[in-house]
Write a protein that binds this DNA or RNA. Structure first.
Lengths: 147, 147
DNA sequence: TATTTTTTTGTATAATTTTGCAGGAATTTT
DNA sequence: AAAATTCCTGCAAAATTATACAAAAAAATA
């Protein structure tokens, strides 16, 4: 379906911002947003998003993104493999979360691209800070990062 | 029961060291170790241990201790007492000066907070660069850091 | 110790989640 | 464009996980 990626985004979004404790509950929220899928599909979505059902202090459960914050919700295949876990933006900066230890390798790959969109990058252990040239959109940056 | 705590330890141990994908599987391992409980009790144990069923890359599931990666709140003192010397801001960046060698430890503590306000951090030796999410004020950031 | 209260557990069952299967869409190949 | 392939989905059922309830065990109290 055309909307699957979008839907995954929304699911991730809901999980990030609200407290849902079962798939049926989550399903209701989705339906309110006009997203009509069945629980089976949701289960598959959650698996793909690596969502986890977390027991809380107060004896309940809430769903939670195990992997990260947000943009990892992007279809995993679309972002370069190797160890990028997520990419998020703030202004002209992108923070790329990587598997531990992968950061410098990835940064060096990005540098090697010599992409005009990127001014440069700095790697820690599991994050890369990527500085975007002015007027480069997040979307443009993302698409550069894709395989 | 006297052995409950001990049992919880063992369960945690098994989860840390082996890959089990269902409670029945885990139950078998426990039985082999001479720990005879039912699935119901195990379910309760897992809840208490805050164990999570994590979808993996290869389309399976493995149980995992969520507390290790902690979405736990950080006790106020734990961070400022670990060697933060100063925090200063520039736009959506914060530079945290630390005692020499403390930077990565502090950065990793900050990451462990999983605070929505922070996109991520990169540690050098005695400084941490902290990237704030857009529209997060310096004041908000500071209060998260509880300096 | 006897009594009361709290905690822990199993049984059975309810609730929830996962998946095999088949059909239909989308995409790719010829 | 047709054919082949891959992807996505719902349905229904299987598999898994959570819990109400009752009883046993442990702990606290008298």
């Amino acid at each position: 379906m055309k909307n699957k990626n979008n839907r995954l985004q929304q699911v991730a979004e809901i999980i990030r911002n609200t407290h849902v404790g079962s798939q049926d509950e989550l399903l209701k929220v989705l339906h309110e947003k006009g997203i009509a899928i069945t629980q089976a599909t949701l289960s598959r979505d959650l698996k793909q998003l690596r969502v986890v059902k977390l027991p809380t202090d107060d004896g309940e459960y809430i769903y939670s993104l195990s992997t990260d914050k947000s943009l990892n919700a992007m279809p995993a295949e679309s972002i370069s493999e190797k160890g990028i876990l997520s990419v998020e933006f703030s202004g002209n900066l992108a923070v790329i979360k990587t598997r531990p230890g992968y950061a410098s390798a990835i940064a060096s790959d990005i540098d090697a691209m010599n992409a005009h969109e990127f001014l440069g990058s700095i790697a820690g252990d599991d994050s890369v800070l990527l500085i975007l040239r002015e007027n480069v959109s997040h979307k443009q940056a993302l698409s550069k990062l894709r395989v």
